[in-house]
Amino acid sequence: MAATQEEIVKGLAEIVNEIAGIPEEDVQLDKSFTDDLDVDSLSMVEVVVAAEERFDVKIPDDDVKTLKTVGDAVTYIAEHQG
């Protein structure tokens, strides 16, 4: 069953907390992974792989570059999840 937007945000928040140590409540739709959440390009790959596993979605490397904010990722996952 597909995850709701709320579930995706919560899931991403847990992943970002695990990888970058950012409090889950700070992971909001308008936040930039790089500028606000201390997720550099290498850590972003970790976030993506964890999200792929959690939400049953494939995020090709070329698409990863388009995911600037948490909102971008939530939208992408909602549209592509299996």
């Binding site: 290498l42 850590s43 970790e46 792989v49």
Partner: peptide
């Protein structure tokens, strides 16, 4: 392979 950490080389 997909699960190998991107931090492996550094």
């Amino acid at each position: 392979a997909r699960r190998v950490s991107p931090h492996t080389v550094p």
